Amino acid sequence: MYETTMTGSFFRTKEIEELLRKSSTGEIDNTHDHVIRSAESLAISDQLHPLGSKSGLTWVSNGEQRKSGYTTYIPNRFHGFSTKNRVSQKFSEAFYNELMEANPYLEKVIQDSKVFELPAIEDKLVYTGEKQSRKEAEDARKLAKELGAKRIFIPTPSPGVITVFYPPGKAYHDHEDYLFDLSRELAKEYRSILSVDGVDLQIDAPDLAMAKSLGVDWTEKFFDVLAKHVQAINDAIKGLPSERIRVHYCYGNYSASHLTDPDYSKVLPELLKLKAGTIVGEMANARHAGDPLIIRKHVKEYVWPKNIKFAVGVIDVKSPFVETPEAVSQKLHNVSDIDDIGEEHVLGGTDCGFETFSGMDGVPKNIALHKLKSLAEGAALK
């Protein structure tokens, strides 16, 4: 039987969405504790007992209920962002063309909106959010105990993914200066979360793959800086308990052809240099369902690190097709049957979160619950 988990964000309640729409910070403050607690309790319960089933996931999250997105709350926990000026990152024309080709109805929405605009950076960023991060972790610990969750984690961004969405402005000399300064500052959030016993940390690092897909304007090519992004994570978690740390990589939680995704055979060796205990990866959708073959080839030439577990994405969060338990089991065996890996190093997971940003989900909640039920049942098949 495999352990099971998902990737952080889950469907926010109507009350939470309303508060987030009114929030200027991307985060709900503590004056609404009762609403947050109710929403997080529901998110955890849905993971533990999808559709009322007796068994569900074994490693759950708080659903990111108090945040509008995994990166949008960042200005609320840092000093250095402008309170007036906003700016958008420059993504490649290839990315926009790929997105529009698959979703032509989005063209006018994107043209007429400021969806990618976020607070501009005016000065070097200094982390100030220890109290918020610790309280979030303490709340998660209490709910996990009350609801009977074996393990619970709090998602938080990697240093590199912040560089994806927030251009550095004139505060930093270059990309590397910006990246490693963020590494030093975000280490404070990581330590704050892990200071709460019984709570684990997930570092959301789509920069390790998605940044190539988006064509992010880093002034450097993706594969020239990928190793530095891994190092920035390792620097930030140095001295912290690796068995309580997971890192999630993905290619972007959006529906498109994903023809611009990076070559996994070049990404995988860098991922395996992470000092985290668990890697959470995207492998359920049609574009990346063949990635286990790349893993197999890599392991034949090298070895699988014995200190790293892999939460394999076996649930596609962008498709309404509900995987059968048998399909889940097969996808898990596609990785665990590889030499030197084995079931002890594999967990069942989802490709990404179900609601990465508030109100932006890929499938309806009821379908997501069916998917989680299949995940739990498939992981239990012999």
Rank of each mutant, 00 (worst) to 15 (best):
L20M: 03
T25G: 06
E27N: 08
V35C: 02
A39Y: 04
E40S: 14
S45C: 05
K54T: 08
N62S: 08
Q65K: 07
K67Y: 12
S68G: 15
H79D: 14
R86I: 10
E93T: 14
A94N: 03
Y96P: 03
I110Q: 13
I110S: 13
D112P: 11
S113W: 03
F116M: 13
D123S: 15
V126L: 10
L143H: 11
I152C: 10
E189W: 02
L194I: 01
V199E: 00
K212R: 02
S213E: 06
D217C: 06
T219R: 08
E220R: 15
F223G: 11
D224E: 06
L226C: 00
H229P: 09
H229G: 15
D235F: 14
S265R: 11
K273S: 13
K275E: 12
K275F: 09
G281F: 08
N285C: 03
G290R: 04
G290H: 12
D291C: 03
E301V: 12
V312D: 04
G313M: 05
V314S: 09
F321N: 15
V322T: 14
L332Q: 14
N334K: 14
S336K: 09
D337S: 15
G349E: 06
G353H: 00
K373P: 09
K373G: 05
S374W: 04
